[in-house]
Design a protein around this nucleic acid. Structure first.
Lengths: 353, 353
DNA sequence: TGCCCCAATGTGAGCGCCCACATGGGATCA
DNA sequence: TGATCCCATGTGGGCGCTCACATTGGGGCA
């Protein structure tokens, strides 16, 4: 039961104004929560709105005023599509959608996703097209775009609010992230606390700021606890199963093989799980595993994976909130760091010996 | 290198018209691929567009003309958010986004997601608000909304193209789906072909048309092969791990326990895997498993899961294509059935005895 | 009482585009 | 050669809303 006009053409602000016996502008003020409207009038208008089932047209609002009620989240085309096509899982997009959509909805906003190529020249051109076409009130840049200063500069020139996801502190502007370095430190401390001294690290890759950050945290923790670190314990698996398998094989073949391995995502952690099994070793008895993603499926492996939960949905939700606040005049800059969680499950225990 | 105007305010159709020495309308014709523009003029205009980096403003296009260049995909709020919050995985949203976004992008369209409650009254009201606010060129209804005739009627009244996802043939209008019944028949035939005669079925639930469809296919195949079917082999797990665990336990405790189990999604298939292991039985030696979802993680279980791949991204992509065609005058109705794939991996083999 | 100020409302214009229609010139036909 | 057509282009108007500004009225202050 949306209203009395159900079935007819669109209900405009004009209709509401007429019904409430006021001008368009006063109705507009009520819609936009502007001050200086008499409570009695406001209520009368609200009743007319409810009665007619009036909902402002977003395109017209954009045309008339400054706001578009749109937040655009930019993902890397290649990483998003190709990885998925190749069958690689990813919790990222789901979480972004859930966190962002919910936050946007609460303010009458909409969030939409766009894909942009990582290549610097293409990225700028594509982003510029998106801006021209959509004129969003804010743009969320995810890695690797969030590290691209040219894009940030472009958005600044176009005067569009920009939230950067998961970039290290040094960058300026609005940033929302989790503390990957601290998380890695925490994980390493946890393993050291269990008695591990030979801890391996399967990194995603050195081009990801996040991965480098985590590696620092891992090294920090090892150094702080005076645990010697063999550089060969640190290996790159590119976030993928097969390379991670091979690297784990190599790790297990070392004379001072690690008794615990940290992996930068779940897929690599699973590869580690399999490789350890293949080598005739036990998880977690012989080798403990901690992952850095925590997709829903990790609860169902044998044993279920101990993992760091990245608060992606919260991060995107916070980014949306910030951008909307910004579009409404609040231009607080700064870095917002959201808490992560280490979820201890079945792949970690004290080392045997 | 977007164009010469980089840095200035918005480039409008007016600027292009002036530069090319024609009227706005002629530029508009070029943008919209209308006929009756001299090739020479068209090229001159195109050059001006490229030079200025002109991109039409989507809100203005919506205001002036009939099209909004927006396709909205409607998901169930509860199923989408609550399940995810409770830690249950779901490949659905990712695939929708990938398939839909790519198809939309190819036509200069954008796709956005909205959540709507399943409750019939709320659903209609919420959908009506979405229509009034966004005026999309088309709406994609996913289950359970795609089975809600009131929503379909509302969209028809509002003259908005509607594509329904995964509803059985009997419903009219534009429908895009996979043939779940045939897929279930195929899976069952495959298992029967391997030599299985006692085949269990872990269904998602009887309120999902898709699940009922699959059950029919399973029963068809059993009947066609003259394999007797014990009704107690068919159980409901609500798509969730824990209930599926219990039902599998019950299944395994039967005197004529199944030698193969079909599950309606991956999470339940994993539960089955664990339950069989717990019972001291082997997969696939003692019991074979086939799942009906094929999320990326299934490749990494031990053994990797044999599963039916639902072509969700293709389905949503096709729905987007249909809706865009419809917005441009092509009003072909009908059911579009996209092919699925049975991916045979490590959880199926001939039964022991 | 008169003045000013500000809260509460209304008015005109325009955002950038596409629609309907009007207009001009060439080819086509008798 | 003139009438007819249709292709190629231009013009005016308006979509639904918000902006900047104008206007009204009532309360506080001297």
């Amino acid at each position: 039961m949306t209203g009395a006009m159900t079935g007819s053409g669109s209900v405009t602000i004009e209709h509401v104004a007429e019904m409430a016996g006021v001008s368009r502008q006063t109705v507009s003020r009520v819609i936009n929560n502007s001050p200086n409207v008499k409570p009695a009038v406001k209520e009368r208008i609200q009743q007319a709105i409810d009665h007619l089932g009036y909902v402002p047209n977003i395109a017209a609002r954009r045309m008339g005023g400054a706001k578009s009620f749109l937040i655009v989240a930019i993902n890397d085309r290649h990483r998003t599509l190709e990885n998925w096509r190749a069958g690689h899982g990813n919790d990222w997009v789901d979480q972004m959608l859930y966190g962002g959509m919910t936050a946007a909805e609460a303010h009458g906003y909409h969030m939409l996703f766009e894909l942009v190529d990582a290549d610097p020249e293409m990225a700028s051109a594509q982003l510029d097209r998106i801006i021209a076409s959509l004129r969003p009130d804010g743009i969320i840049l995810t890695p690797p775009h969030s590290q691209n200063e040219a894009l940030v500069a472009l958005l600044a020139a176009r005067k569009i609010g920009c939230a950067r996801i998961n970039v290290p502190d040094e960058f300026a502007g609005v940033t929302v992230r989790m503390d990957d370095r601290a998380a890695a430190r925490e994980v390493t401390d946890y393993l050291i606390g269990l008695g591990h001294r030979r801890i391996g690290y399967l990194s995603g890759g050195r081009d990801y700021a996040v991965c480098l950050d985590r590696l620092s945290g891992y090294k920090d923790a090892m150094a702080a606890a005076d645990v010697p670190l063999n550089p060969d314990w640190v290996r790159e698996g590119g976030f993928l199963f097969d390379p991670a398998s091979r690297e784990t094989d190599a790790l297990l073949a070392m004379p001072d093989r690690p008794t615990a391995i940290i992996a930068d995502n779940d897929e690599m952690a699973f590869a580690t799980l399999h490789a350890i099994d293949r080598a005739g070793l036990q998880v977690p008895g012989d080798v403990s595993i901690v992952s850095f993603e925590d997709t829903p499926g990790v609860r169902f492996s044998v044993p279920p994976l101990t993992a760091v939960r990245q608060p992606i949905s919260d991060i995107i939700g916070a980014a949306v909130e910030r951008l909307i606040a910004r579009a409404n005049g609040d231009d607080t800059d700064g870095v917002l760091t959201l808490p992560h969680t280490l979820r201890i499950r079945g792949t970690t225990c004290a080392p045997k010996a």
